[in-house]
């Protein structure tokens, strides 16, 4: 591989990062290669000892996604960056992470299922409540049966809201733990000989 091929491969493997970041990384790599050549080494020698550009890119991608997940301001953002970080790490250390992927997807499935269940319960309670209020407007049921039914439905609505809030915290905890694990793993993994 020559210098141009190395830079091109690196660039294409980084394509998910913001352009400014890609430019900076390429600038740094060019500086490095230039310094090595000035120190009297051949271009092939430097490129060979830099290793696979895809590995370097995977490590950079994982770092960036992890940092973005840590700094995420919404649950949706955090989830997006965590998933991207998991897949970037997978490209970096497949043997290291293959055992992590199963449990991760399993938990992610459970969390997703929890969201579907709690939000459908919340929606049905709201639907029943609306239907009940409409029905009451047209039929003349006793005030006591109306009140008891209304209290029951409001109670159910409260329970469903609590379930949604719990899901929010469970998701947040799950994503934060995953990121913490990935960060730790990244510090230890990815150092290889040629």
């Amino acid at each position: 591989m020559n210098r141009k091929e190395f830079i091109d491969q690196l660039k294409s493997s980084l394509s998910r990062l913001p352009q400014a970041e890609i430019n900076e990384i390429i600038r740094d790599q060019e500086e490095y290669i230039q310094d090595a050549i000035q120190a009297g080494r051949s271009e092939e020698n430097v490129i060979a000892s830099l290793g696979d550009p895809k590995t370097i890119a995977a490590s950079l991608n994982a770092t960036t996604q992890i940092e973005k997940a840590v700094g995420a301001t919404s649950l949706k953002q955090q989830a997006g960056h965590t998933f991207q970080a998991v897949f970037a790490m997978l490209a970096l250390a497949p043997f290291n992470l293959i055992f992590v992927l199963g449990p991760f997807l399993g938990f992610a499935g459970l969390v997703f299922g929890g969201w579907v269940a709690s939000s459908s319960i919340a929606l049905s309670v709201v639907a029943v409540l609306i239907a009940f209020l409409f029905k009451f407007a047209f039929a003349s049921a006793g005030i006591f049966s109306f009140l008891s039914m209304l209290l029951f439905l409001l109670g159910a609505l409260g329970a469903a809201t609590l379930a949604l809030i719990a899901m929010y915290h469970i998701s947040h905890f799950f994503l934060t733990s995953t990121i913490r694990y990935l960060r730790w793993n990244l510090k230890l993994a990815g150092i290889t000989k040629n």
Binding site: D28, D35, V46, G51, I56, T63, G190, K193
Partner: peptide, 26 residues
Amino acid sequence: YGYELVESISKRIEISEGTIYPILRR
């Protein structure tokens, strides 16, 4: 600077030079 740092480390410890940059960036 990058090259100088990698030189100081790879002089004594055998590593792929490309692994240092991601560490520096992180």
